[in-house]
């Protein structure tokens, strides 16, 4: 089995040589198949352990339900329509919060980055906010906004806002100066320069923030829903645990995993689409 070191230092074609020789496609496809099948091996192994360990008494089957029980509970939730109710509640809240954060943080970040003094004044403050865990502020949000929907959406906005804002600021502020010089030489207005040069150049950095925000949206929401909610995946997890519906609890947890994966992969896919121009 070649180690990372051997694999990366092996003599090989760079992308342009590979393209010239027309050998890239073949190697890519074979590499991809191998990768997918190895990944499947890992998943299957995990599923097997989850199923077998409780059944053989290696772990207490009451606290860790075998996978088949969990899947059965998940199927029941799906058929009864409960799953959809809770999933929808969570998706609406996190989607709303994420969307709001996105639409405020990007323009605001761009504006802050545009003027160096502004950037230098606000950056330390923003850095402080970012490092204040959103959940630590949950009691404050509940106090001010009450226990309803508003406080839950607000905490998602908070959690998503700072990663996007700070990445937008750093992406915009670090645009290659040579690109800006060639834009200025063409006599482009500041607005056009921003639209056609600065924003596209900053997009990969901004997207890093967006991906962090996507993960944060789910994480924070689930926790928020465990406190004073009547619907949502977090509520479902907590409720199942209180009522000793352990397989159902795991079913709800698996659903959050699915949501997290779906968000992450769709963001990655969008990012890929937008940055096809890169290697």
């Amino acid at each position: 089995m070649p180690s990372l070191l051997e694999e990366r230092t092996e003599a090989g074609l760079n992308s342009r040589q590979a393209q010239a020789a027309g050998v890239r496609a073949e190697r890519r496809i074979r590499g991809r198949l191998a990768r997918i099948s190895r990944g499947l091996v890992g998943i299957v192994a995990l599923a097997t352990i989850w199923e077998v360990a409780p059944r053989m008494g290696l772990v207490d089957p009451y606290f860790v339900s075998p996978l088949s029980d969990v899947l059965a509970a998940w199927w029941d939730l799906l058929l009864s329509g409960d799953l959809w109710i809770h999933l929808k509640a969570s998706l609406v809240r996190s989607g709303l919060g994420f969307g709001l954060a996105l639409s405020i943080a990007i323009p605001l970040g761009a504006a802050i980055a545009w003027y160096r003094p502004v950037r230098e004044v606000v950056s330390p403050v923003l850095e402080m906010f970012r490092n204040t865990a959103a959940l630590a502020l949950l009691p404050v949000f509940l106090l001010i906004l009450g226990i309803g929907e508003v406080s839950k959406v607000a905490i998602v906005v908070y959690a998503c806002f700072f990663p996007i804002l700070l990445n937008t600021i750093s992406g915009v502020a670090s645009v290659d100066q040579q690109l800006l010089r060639s834009a200025r030489v063409l006599g482009l207005s500041p607005v056009t320069t921003f639209r056609k040069v600065v924003f596209p150049a900053a997009l990969p950095t901004i997207f890093t923030g967006i991906r962090i925000a996507g993960a944060a949206a789910v994480l924070v929401l689930i926790a928020a829903e465990m406190i004073g909610a009547t619907a949502g995946l977090g509520y479902l997890i907590n409720y199942s645990q209180y009522n000793f519906l352990i397989p159902q609890m795991y079913a709800a947890i698996l659903t959050t995993t699915g949501v997290g994966l779906a968000i992450n992969y769709s963001l990655v896919a969008i990012e890929r689409r937008l940055s096809r121009w890169r290697a």
């Binding site: 010089r181 030489v185 063409l186 006599g187 150049a201 121009w277 890169r278």
Partner: peptide, 28 residues
């Protein structure tokens, strides 16, 4: 100030990496 009566070619890194060769000329 800058103007389109003068064109400038710098040493490097001045093409927009997200635009094709043709797109970069269209940009100007």
């Amino acid at each position: 100030g800058p103007g389109l009566d003068r064109g400038v070619v710098f040493q490097q890194y001045t093409l927009l990496p997200w635009r094709t060769a043709l797109g970069n000329i269209e940009f100007a």
